[in-house]
Design a protein around this nucleic acid. Sequence first.
DNA 1: AGTATTTTTTTAATACTCGAAAAAATCATT
DNA 2: AATGATTTTTTCGAGTATTAAAAAAATACT
Lengths: 411, 411
Amino acid sequence: MARGVADTEMIRRQNRELILGVLRRSGPLSRSEIAIETGLSNATLTTIAAEFVTQGVLIDLDAPAEEAKARGRPSVKLTHNRKAGYILLIELDVTRCRLSLLDYGGVLVDRVESAVTPSTFAESPAPHYLAERIQLIYTRNTELADRLYTVAISVQGILYPDGSGMKWSPIAHFAGLDIVSPLQARFPITVKLYKRGRLMADGMRWLEPELTHKTVATVFIGSTVGMGLTFPDADRFDSDIGTEFGHMIHIPDGALCRCGAHGCIEAYAADYGILRSAYSVPARTPPAHAVPPGDFQQIITQARLGDRNALHAFNLAGSAIGYGLNRLMSIFEIGRIIILGPGTAAYDLMLSSLREGATSSLMGGINGLPPVTLVADASEPVYRGLLMKALTELDRNVFAAMNQQAQSVAE
Amino acid sequence: MARGVADTEMIRRQNRELILGVLRRSGPLSRSEIAIETGLSNATLTTIAAEFVTQGVLIDLDAPAEEAKARGRPSVKLTHNRKAGYILLIELDVTRCRLSLLDYGGVLVDRVESAVTPSTFAESPAPHYLAERIQLIYTRNTELADRLYTVAISVQGILYPDGSGMKWSPIAHFAGLDIVSPLQARFPITVKLYKRGRLMADGMRWLEPELTHKTVATVFIGSTVGMGLTFPDADRFDSDIGTEFGHMIHIPDGALCRCGAHGCIEAYAADYGILRSAYSVPARTPPAHAVPPGDFQQIITQARLGDRNALHAFNLAGSAIGYGLNRLMSIFEIGRIIILGPGTAAYDLMLSSLREGATSSLMGGINGLPPVTLVADASEPVYRGLLMKALTELDRNVFAAMNQQAQSVAE
DNA sequence: AGTATTTTTTTAATACTCGAAAAAATCATT
DNA sequence: AATGATTTTTTCGAGTATTAAAAAAATACT
């Protein structure tokens, strides 16, 4: 039920993971510092560190440029051996596809970017499209022949339960295919799909360490409405949570959403929904394909000037999100809300109706609206989240799991 | 971040837990059977089993009444030493309070039952009331002087984040007090509060083992609407999930709920809500205090005879629950729905509107309504859930954690 | 050059699992 | 009744972990 048999190999793996973990969180550290941080003894640190160095996973940082030269034997900081392995991040959204190759130290090595249009994946099926670009990365970076271990892809939409592809995606012709298997068959890599909303929440945890012990909900407001949820310490709890907040039904048979359903939160709170209400377009009118940022900005300006229709549109949006949070808070206790994306610019206009919606239930009333933080640029937490997912995956599944006989990974 | 330092003591604790776990799941087993089941070697089983027997946690079952006498050395089944420890279960709801004392083998030893009324906890504060009854159990069962380890209490309502008491409870004067600390101060026991909805879901997992790898949502429909959610393998994931489904807002500013808010699911789908709609009582009318089972049954009968108002009431109820599930399914993927309680009798009357509500969104439409099971008697899974919580708590925190020097627990 | 100080490594002790061999406990057969 | 076959359980030795404590290493200070 819980875990399987425990033996001494597991001890070592677990302690190796522990060490890579603190190194990942708090820069280069000396053996003693790691010992203190992890609770392991110095003796163990000597052993495991030696193992890591032999295997080429970590290296001694001999930049001796210490701060105030202390007495005693100088400490030697350990740090990631950048050549130990490589990761590839793929950020995929409705408009672009960006591949970033990074080394084990998290340093950018190569980058490929291309535009995505509704016809992109009709012309070249997604697995093929991605394989071609990955091949380009391999060709341009010969050093990673067998050292590219893991590919992390950020997507939006609904995953198959086994994570092999998408059941639904806002990107045309992207859903319905097995993405993971063809890539894993062609290249010697582990491929994983991650939901953008979830990455946002994870990324925020790395960017704001004080969130560690809280349940965090991130809400993206922009051309869509997305959410991510992460739970304290549930590092391993990778089940598909915070899935499609934007497509939670706010009002049965309500406004028409891009997804085809009626009454989704998104249909009221995404840019196109706000635009529609602000210009009193009937709520059943099919949504605009894309809203130019200027148009959205203009509605904000109008609302600030007191325009009734614009104010009303933001009220509807706030209310949709507020009730959505309300419904969420009927299920979890949420410790912190982070709102990201272009919608943050209009947060003040939505606040009162958002709060009203969020607190109008038993749970919402008792617990109140949790503290809210605004983060205008959503791409940073997504990138950070994706990066850390890939690196910790490498830490855990490749380098922590190596046994003593393992060959050195570096030349 | 993950776990702490791993050492050899942890190995032993973990393997002990593993053994107690399979024993808990699959009756008495011989050492070899346990070895096969857990993956541990026979040698290890000899060692650990000897330890357990010395400590009085397990005993050799010498009932030799084997089935077909096989050749070879006969196997000796290990089973729980019933005298190793005791647990106390307290089921508390709006009408009664029942204490059940069980031994480590799960056998009922003593039981105390009393009625609860709205004035009960006004006259005797809850911690005092419970302490008195626990004292009675101690007095009547002298053998458990220092062998009662854990008390598990089933409650309804909203817990404090630290689990020490209730923020809100449907039982008058029960909320707002620290329940756990006074009891732990007075008796040498571990006290924990568990939410009834959650126990239902957990209990169903024990009753139907094929649920193991699914996300299960249990929905109680009766005088309230409650929910429990459990996730596959998330044995340890004890955070407070599935909290107040019944008080999720279905329709903003809708029907008046017992909790004082407007538009809760409960206000449409609990017995009082159905009654109210069936008799066309205005939805803002304060709900009846308790609905006699006969009255509820009568509405079912009327609906089956084609009474429009009764049918409409069940439609509203089904719709409320359907949209609630819909909203839930926008956040998790749910693999199985189990409906419990008196409301199951009217499930067929609610089904079409329930399904319509559940599948009207993007997620609901794509995934469809998961398989639904009906269980009329909700008290069995609650009791089972509570029992297994207490026993596994004992297994894990007391008996798995004992070290080699530990004294024997049995005389 | 010698001493103080801090980090890192070595050493010895202990705990745990495992595979293989040995022992134990029964049935089957002669 | 004795011997053999068979299955379960125990014993034993080897291998791998961790840790505390002692030793060694590497530097600053005097």
